[in-house]
Design a protein around this nucleic acid. Structure first.
Lengths: 342, 342
DNA sequence: CCGGTAGGTGGGCACGTTCCCATAGTGAGG
DNA sequence: CCTCACTATGGGAACGTGCCCACCTACCGG
């Protein structure tokens, strides 16, 4: 009974590769980490042995020693929100193109959860973070706490936080919607959106307030809550209860608009015949609603490419000034806002 | 200049806690891992020191030594699919209730990606896996390869794989739909669904074939592709091109049904007046479509609770026989399939 | 001919934790 | 009174890797 005969083939480690290649652990490590000062013969022997044993470096041990895991973490407020889900999908696709792994976590719209998720990702030694923060104000402490690794804010900003940001130009988006609504002849318009606890809510609201009088017309009003279908339904029902239906309901997000459409349909109000409705985000479902939903379409793929580019750049050592990428959204005119069309 | 004065406060480790508590590393470790044989005074001192230093155990080092990370991994074919997104959300919520962390990854409907994701999660020492497999056949090797930790299949099965499964009773779901369709007076029905490369596709198809003749009627037909909006649109357009519209279109998933509704609406076909349409899955959006979509509603929350219960049970050491939980779905009758209603 | 230098290599150590074993103290039973 | 067993504790080792340092050899210049 010779030694090693019949033993269970344990997962190979650096020692095993070194033994088979006839070199030391150090040399194997040098080859695998791409360091210089290794002879071509050694490189060849190590590569052969690695392949032969099916060796893969242990990411845990690697993280332990080097403090880096080779993957980046993402925190999302609510993966069930189609816009965020599409964003995650795009980020994942883009990272895969760069051979970087993604760890996705959900903060469930709670700052406390968000803090925990970020701490956990840091503990797991992610090399960078892409975060869609929960709130523009109270998310700040948890995020400011991240100093060792780069962090890119996606879609939403956070107050007083020096970090890279990637999102759309909300003011331009609201502008294009209002202009379009005005062209359709609407005069009285109500803005239904999330409140100003998120930067997207705040800046879309500010843009509406700044531009509505000049572009559209009389007695503009708000109804602010959260970016959910339920809030859209509630807001629409309240508007109906008050009696005077506006000419147009401009929504701060597509899910809100979907809620509004649902409530109006339930009450027998015709869209676009009785009231125009628009959304914001450009989720895939916007085009599948009946009526199809006019919306400010965010270039999700471009946002993902830019966010990934930025975080990898920072991981690569870039220490330039904080960057803000505001990509222009494009208005998608559809049935829900086109009066008198077929 | 005394030593330690003005030094940067490094992240505390076991040594620091032990020193402050006046005990050894071993005792601290015993307290924190909840082992027995520790005196109450030691426990108190360690807890106090831990709190005082704000010490948190390093999960990487823990994983390195013990081979366990205290979190479980999930692999999903497509996070952008609303049904999967809702499932992920429910799983995350349920795991959080048990204080277990979740690492979510996306296989993007590729068996090769799926294999890589699983390997990576194993490398990261997750304690268990919840997987929605890509295919019932070719996903098998990658999954069979997982032997050290428990794995629970969710929604879809895999051939010849001995592992726990949680999903709905697809045959019962199809049965309830067909019965309902028959009651509405439909005779000719077409089944539009994903093909049999997934177990859900296969079993819904089998159930349709077995039951349709008895329950509904004449010349049933299929149109099989993938569980996507695009396929639903394509299938509906093809049906229209062929001329003879059936009485009802039974879809294998809600996203397919949404695609069908979209295509029919584009072509001016009335639902439910000209043709009945039903879905399967019960995603939240089904109730927001116009017409609202009749669907077989999966108890997503129950599925998540059961999957989490099973995986934690196995992690806890349970070695009982393989379990199959097939939860009964509930038919949600809505506008898209109710002929002659208001 | 000798010293210096650069390229290539191997060994020790550390990262922070858990597991195993040895040891000291204590109570009970023969 | 001695011994056995059991509790509480501390120290050493190990998980697998990357980094630092020391070493060896060959080559080149003085």
């Amino acid at each position: 009974m010779g030694e090693g005969v019949g033993t269970i083939p344990r997962k190979p480690n650096l020692y095993d590769v070194a033994r088979l290649a006839g070199v030391s652990r150090s040399t194997v490590s040098r080859v695998l980490t791409g360091a210089s000062n290794v002879s071509p013969e050694a490189v060849g022997a190590v590569r052969a042995a690695t392949r032969r044993l099916g060796y893969r470096p242990d990411p845990i041990a690697r993280a332990m020693r080097s403090g880096s895991s080779g993957c980046i973490g993402m925190v999302v407020p609510e993966i069930g929100n189609p816009f965020f889900a599409e964003l995650v999908e795009a980020i994942e696709r883009e990272l895969q193109a760069h051979d970087v792994e993604l760890m996705i976590t959900d903060s469930r719209d709670s700052v406390e959860n968000e803090r925990r998720r970020i701490e956990s990702l840091l503990d797991r030694r992610v090399d960078g973070l892409i975060v869609i923060p929960v709130e523009s104000h109270s998310s700040a402490p948890a995020l400011a706490h991240v100093t060792e690794i780069p962090i890119v804010l996606l879609d939403r900003r956070v107050d007083n936080l020096t970090g890279d940001f990637v999102g759309v130009d909300n003011a331009a988006g609201i502008h294009s919607v209002l202009q379009h609504i005005a062209e359709q002849g609407a005069r009285r318009v109500v803005f239904v959106s999330g409140d100003d606890s998120t930067s997207t809510g705040a800046s879309r609201l500010a843009a509406f307030d700044t531009q509505v009088a000049r572009l559209v017309g009389i007695r503009p009003a708000h109804r602010l809550g959260s970016f959910t279908v339920e809030f859209g339904e509630k807001a629409a029902h309240e508007l109906l209860a008050e009696g005077a239906l506006p000419d147009a309901i401009v929504c701060g997000s597509d899910v809100v608009a979907i809620g509004v459409l649902h409530a109006l349909s339930d009450s027998g109000i015709g869209v676009p015949d009785d009231v125009l409705v628009t959304g914001f985000d450009g989720i895939r479902l916007a085009d599948l609603m009946r009526p199809t939903l006019t919306t400010v379409s965010q270039p999700i793929s471009d946002l993902a490419v830019e966010a990934v580019r930025l975080v990898l750049l920072r991981i690569g050592g870039d220490t330039g000034p904080t960057r803000r990428s505001e990509i222009a959204p494009a208005l998608q005119v559809r049935r829900s806002s086109t009066r008198g069309s077929a």
